[in-house]
């Protein structure tokens, strides 16, 4: 009987390992910036190229940085929720318009509404690389002292917001006081 015990034990260990492994999405990679200072950036504004927008604009504030583009289907999907956040949640949203065309991006914002305090226009993807962006939409939660608290990879929604963002925001605000 005991000779079956070890294989049985091994299988009992392997089953949960495989169940967890198979249910993970291999395209979702942890950001190497997690719990580290967010990269800095400075870019021409999408709406007013003569002015810049960058990390200096939100220093000392907790913010969301949302990577979006008009070619990205998930961005259109989450757009209505971003508008809702912009009007209801007490957190500024900065946009990074990634690898896009200015005319298309401007048309998108005037058609669908603009949830962003401002969007930086990252035409050649240089800032995207600095932020380790590899698929839009991506949303970074950045603390008042400039630390990446969370990075979400896929469209935002009420469910995602309540599950992944709100607890982290509350915890960060709690530790500040």
């Amino acid at each position: 009987m005991s000779r079956y015990l070890i294989p049985l034990l091994l299988v009992a260990i392997m089953i949960p390992v495989f169940i967890i492994g198979l249910n993970r999405d291999p395209s979702e990679l942890p950001s190497p910036f997690l719990n580290k200072p967010a990269p800095e950036f400075e870019l021409p504004r999408l709406k007013d190229p003569s002015r810049t927008v960058g990390s200096a604009d939100y220093a000392g504030q907790m913010v969301l940085v949302n990577i979006w583009a008009t070619w990205c289907a998930g961005c259109r999907q989450e757009h209505a929720y971003l508008l809702k956040l912009a009007s209801e949640a007490d957190i500024p949203i900065y946009g990074l318009n990634w690898r896009d065309q200015r005319s298309k991006a401007l048309a998108w914002l005037s058609e669908l509404g603009d949830p962003y305090v401002a969007s930086g226009f990252d035409e050649d993807g240089r800032v995207g690389i600095d932020w380790g962006v590899y698929g839009a939409p991506e949303t970074f939660l950045i603390s008042a002292d400039g630390i990446v608290l969370y990075k979400h990879l896929s469209p935002l929604s009420e469910m995602v917001w309540q599950r992944d963002f709100e607890p982290r925001i509350l915890a960060a605000k709690g530790s500040m006081e």
């Binding site: 395209s27 690898r99 050649d124 995207g128 690389i129 698929g135």
Partner: peptide
């Protein structure tokens, strides 16, 4: 290439690979 995870950026024509 992180967009197409089983390709190198040498083989991929994804624009992220292009940027890199």
């Amino acid at each position: 290439c992180l967009v197409c995870q089983n390709q190198t950026i040498k083989d991929s024509n994804a624009f992220l690979a292009d940027d890199l």
